[in-house]
Amino acid sequence: MTGTAPAARPLLEVRGLRVVFDGFTAVDGLDLTVAEGELRFLIGPNGAGKTTLIDVVTGLTRPAAGQVLFDGTELVGRREHRIVRLGVGRTFQTSVVFERLSVVENVDLAAAFRLGLPRLLRVRRGVSGTVAEALERTGLTALADRPAGELSHGQRQWLEIAMLLAQRPRLLLLDEPVAGMSRDERERTGELLLEIARDHTVVVVEHDMAFLRSYARTVTVLHEGRVLTEGDVAQVQADPRVREVYLGRRGAGDEPAVPAGGEVG
């Protein structure tokens, strides 16, 4: 549990990030540092730039300005699969798994990207240790041979996490892992998250406040493309500015808060 120690080496450093979509500035001068071994929650009202931030880190979106350093390596300008190969993995809000393939095939493909072309041309025999472990941790072992298309919504999210684990990334970016889950599933996902965070650096984007209170350690609040505040859960919750942006009130001299903003769990 060295996660919150401030002396830890930064694994991810975002500096002066600016992202513009057709004249709309989604991220505006964002700085963020995540240390090795940390479990970091990113929250903020709709349009705060949380997903955009993840998209930039993983190469899906090109920023207008700024730097993204992963263990000292610049990520901006690299193609998506190169960034994955450097050790950055992500999941998506709407889980995208390969429905025609079985659960184990999905996870196996995620694990196999390091194999060369000649070895990819061979048939998969059995289940590798990495794949078995990822299935075990996410509780999908019993479903291994089922087509992924048959999984429930919650199970699909876990499959995404299993695929992510099988990639053995150094940094995991989870985009709303509990969206649309039942209370039971949220709890299991939370436990899974804490367990994964024991030996990985994890960044979680989440809307759900109850989930945040139960499982978050360090929280970064984004608002209108900038970091509003950062701290542990209690600090952040006590911050009047955070309440303001979440309740959509007008602050003194501020722009009107994000119109769709009232998502408080």
Binding site: R85, F98, D108, R114
Partner: peptide, 17 residues
Amino acid sequence: RLLVAVRDGEDRVRFLG
């Protein structure tokens, strides 16, 4: 298997590396 995965979700495959 990867080819089928590309057919069904080319963008997702990039994020598998």
